[in-house]
């Protein structure tokens, strides 16, 4: 019965070939370090889901941002859990992405013909850091405010264009409602769009070009 139904759908979706190409592809004999990329992808998915849930209540405005975060954490059923996952998931993202990068680096997996996989991965790391930086401001508490003051100031010391970068990051000379709004917009629109695009290319390459084997001792 189910097999028949499956066949019926496959005739119309032609999906099985794609599924097999993704999940039944041949891979070299590898070790547990090779799961770090999948772990990162998993946490990224978790961040997307919990992030979407947080936007149901979060308000990116100086008057209400902090209060809405407190409301999520203390008043809503399971709000502490959703926010907690997003909060700790953010740290996990950075740790896993870097660990994944180190694995690829030390195994020499970035070499021909996988340079583009590596380069998209580097951009993904930048996007993840961007997520962390913009997301850190959103609770609009003391730590968020001053961390962003310092962070944007650091960008400001770059020679020649420093002040210009600082003003663009803050949306003016000082941290303000404009800063909070643009950090939120970046966090929920620009970065997720970049992340999805880059992950798409990254995964395509992993499936199309394949992954490298653990290098032999004399290589």
């Amino acid at each position: 019965m189910w097999a028949k139904l499956g066949d019926w759908f496959d005739e119309r979706f032609q999906w099985r070939q794609v599924w097999d190409a993704i999940f039944l592809r041949k891979i070299p004999h590898v070790n547990w370090f090779y799961t770090l990329g999948s772990a990162t992808l998993f946490v990224a998915t978790l961040q997307a889901v919990t992030g979407i849930l947080l936007t149901i209540y979060y308000v990116p405005d100086p008057t209400h941002a902090y209060d809405s975060v407190v409301y999520i954490t203390t008043q809503l059923p399971m709000g502490w859990f959703i926010r907690g996952l997003h909060h700790w998931g953010a740290s996990a993202m950075v740790v896993l992405t870097v660990a994944h990068l180190l694995r690829v680096f030390f195994y020499g997996a970035y070499k021909y013909p996988r340079e583009m996989t590596w380069i998209t991965g580097v951009f993904l790391l930048l996007v993840v850091i961007g997520f962390g930086f913009t997301g850190y401001l959103l609770p609009w508490d003391q730590k968020a405010y001053w961390a962003t003051t310092v962070g944007t100031k650091i960008a400001g010391v770059a020679p020649v264009i420093g002040d210009w970068i600082l003003r663009i990051a803050r949306g003016g000379p000082d941290l303000s409602a404009v800063t909070l709004a643009r950090f939120f917009g970046t966090h929920v629109w620009i970065l997720p769009a970049s992340l999805a695009t880059l992950i798409g290319i990254h995964l395509y390459l992993i499936i199309r070009i394949g992954i490298s084997a653990v290098p032999a001792k004399d290589e």
């Binding site: 809503l76 399971m78 859990f81 959703i82």
Partner: peptide, 8 residues
């Protein structure tokens, strides 16, 4: 968890 969170 999402259900009570949304309809709470």
């Amino acid at each position: 968890s999402a259900i009570p969170y949304i309809i709470g």
